[in-house]
């Protein structure tokens, strides 16, 4: 397989995971989907790197795979177990409409890739990356639970990771590792925050924050 078809093979599960994320109604499914998407995305630097495999890329992929594929889902599952909530996602926006918006986001990303003059080899990967970021933002905005907002944040981070892999292959290792560390800390802190919100208010609906008074 040449590079372009490999890139295609990586792009397809990413886009399908985006649509499935918007369509799934269960938190556990969401965690698995984000983990799967993260695992696929964390090996993409290997595809986009020109020339032979370097230690730099190998380390980055291994760390990203470990974090996105194993550690994050574990942390999220643990948080989900501790916070006893209904395991359903409560959307502001219905699922069909969310999927439609997701597809519109993909089309917009394709249009943007065309406008920006992204080279043909990474055209679709760029679009997929941008669509993933948009999906993440959509999840953050349109879902009620604090938990799903973490999912949206992670999906957006997946998109940014893919975007760096596409646009700047072989970027500085320590910056990328630092970002991964930041995300790790963020997921950790958000898990604790959700736990505290839950203990304080008996629910993790971000809706209710509006009615807070001092």
């Amino acid at each position: 397989m040449d590079m372009i078809s490999l890139a295609h093979a990586a792009v397809v599960p990413v886009i399908l995971a985006n649509l499935a994320l918007l369509a799934s109604s269960r938190l556990v499914t969401c965690i698995r989907l984000v983990a799967l998407q993260g695992a696929v995305i964390s090996v993409t630097p290997l595809i986009f790197e020109s020339g032979p495999l370097t230690v730099h890329t190998a380390v980055l992929c291994a760390v990203a795979l470990g974090l996105k594929g194993v550690v994050f889902p574990q942390l999220l599952h643990r948080t989900l177990r501790r916070v006893v909530v209904r395991h359903e996602i409560e959307p502001y926006l219905g699922y069909p409409l969310s999927i439609l918006l997701g597809i519109l986001g993909l089309l917009a990303s394709l249009w943007l890739a065309g406008r920006l003059g992204v080279p043909a080899a990474s055209y679709r990967s760029f679009a997929a990356a941008f669509a993933t970021i948009l999906t993440g933002l959509l999840l953050i905005v349109t879902r009620k639970k604090a938990f799903t907002q973490v999912m949206g944040y992670l999906a957006a981070e997946n998109g940014i990771f893919l975007l760096t892999a596409v646009l700047a292959p072989g970027g500085p290792l320590f910056i990328e590792l630092a970002i991964l560390l930041d995300v790790f800390v963020a997921v950790f802190v958000m898990g604790i925050a959700i736990h505290h919100i839950n203990r304080q208010f008996d629910c993790i609906d971000t809706d209710r924050f509006c009615s807070l008074k001092d």
Binding site: V12, I15, L19, A23, P96, I99, I103, L106, R124
Partner: peptide, 14 residues
């Protein structure tokens, strides 16, 4: 069925 359509549309895009 919409999922089937999404698969086909994605193929068309690719």
């Amino acid at each position: 069925l919409a999922a089937a359509g999404a698969f086909a549309a994605l193929a068309l895009i690719l």
